[in-house]
Write a protein that binds this DNA or RNA. Structure first.
Lengths: 224, 224
DNA sequence: GAACATCTGTTATTCTTAAAACAGAAATGG
DNA sequence: CCATTTCTGTTTTAAGAATAACAGATGTTC
């Protein structure tokens, strides 16, 4: 009833909790405290408790969280207790990698269709999936109830693909192309661009040895 | 002089600015305003101005920013005006994809070595690079001044690889494995895990038709 | 060359997120 | 069974980030 809006930061941490909980379960750990979790995940225990408390009282005072129960709860929150079909456009190396990766992660979240524009790729097989031409995108998305679209095509084609996904009715897009996609407000887009990651990492490198004075204000005096 | 610490959020936006500026330059656009940039990049113009102002007075009142000049400045801030050598461990599909991707992006930032533990992969070639065994990591990192390490190995092996990178002396790590790496504080780690991205996207999906109630956030009226 | 429009850099304000503090429930151990 | 420890959920406080507001340059137009 409380339409309390959950911060995006919180939502992004839930999968991280889930992942570790699954590992704990596999190791037959029955309960876990926010302290333990925090230590393992490099997060503040208070934050973890608060995150979880947004969604309900999952823990027990004096004990902690029941691992299996919490897994179920987080899965429910993330809608991973429903079938979530995913479609992917771009049967390149990255597309291949994603198909293999996500296969064994969650039974309910699955890549169920792969598309590409290049004739040479069409009808090849990735992970038991036939690569389909773009013309089949709309119908396949509808017929297979594909709700999330992954884009792994070159930057120049990404917007076009996004438009097709949106028109076909997907609800969210995970975009690996280095562009900012324009989509209607009700579509959720997340950009996973590793060039951005790499470039921003470079910022934190130590300055080069040979006395680059770096006159400007931002000079970090930190040397090895 | 001002040891003003720059927010991580700011640093993460710089590559996005840079990318768009490069595109503008290619289209021979000479100047650009924060307004224009904001519109293209879905960001608040004030934020863009503030971000850039942290590092200097790059713009001119009444005009905006000189595209070429701003490119040079951001490249400098991100240390992309120096050679930044990158090493990659994990010659799988994802590793392949990254090697191809980053090749044409910036002359100074380059993947210069690829490693893998699997004997079958060793001595194969990716993008003109010989895949080297892990035993060669330390020496190669040192001899080639590799400063950033990319990890694209399965989750279970990631920490081990990270340890080797750290020992060899890299300054930053880009980790694609779904684990939280433990590294010394002076090493910068960024985790680029798309399972996290995908799972958090699922949160924003509409609830399935038959359970429209959505009474409370915590109530588990979860029906498929 | 004055009036107007443009656009930055900076300051002020609002909004959001993280951390700390704490009361209360559950278990444990003598 | 009482004291102590553990650990949650919530409240309070602090920190941080985004947005808005505005003064000061710059250019343009008539």
């Amino acid at each position: 009833m409380k339409t309390l809006k959950i911060s995006e930061a919180v939502v992004r941490r839930l999968p991280i909790y889930l992942r570790h909980l699954l590992e704990l379960k596999q190791r037959e750990v029955l309960t876990v405290s926010s302290q333990d979790l925090g230590q393992k995940l490099d997060l503040n225990p208070a934050q973890i408790r608060k995150d979880l408390a947004y969604f309900g009282d999952f823990g027990r005072k004096g004990i902690g969280y029941d691992v299996s129960y919490l897994i179920e709860q987080i899965k429910h929150i993330l809608k991973l207790d429903q079938k979530v079909h995913v479609g992917l456009v771009g049967a390149g190396k990255l597309g291949h990698a994603l198909c293999n990766y996500t296969v064994y992660l969650n039974d309910n979240m699955k890549i169920v269709a792969v598309f590409d524009a290049q004739p040479s790729k069409i009808n090849t097989t990735i992970n038991n999936l036939r690569v389909q031409p773009m013309e089949e995108l709309q119908s396949t998305v509808i017929n297979n109830r594909i709700r999330i679209g992954i884009i792994t095509v070159p930057a120049l084609e990404a917007q076009q693909v996004a438009d097709q996904f949106v028109e076909a009715g997907v609800e969210a897009i995970l975009n690996f192309a280095p562009v900012i996609l324009k989509v209607p407000a009700h579509i959720r887009v997340h950009t996973a661009d590793f060039t951005t990651d790499l470039f921003s990492l470079a910022y934190y490198l130590q300055d080069d040895e040979e006395g680059k004075d770096l006159v400007t204000h931002d000079d970090n005096i930190n040397r090895t």
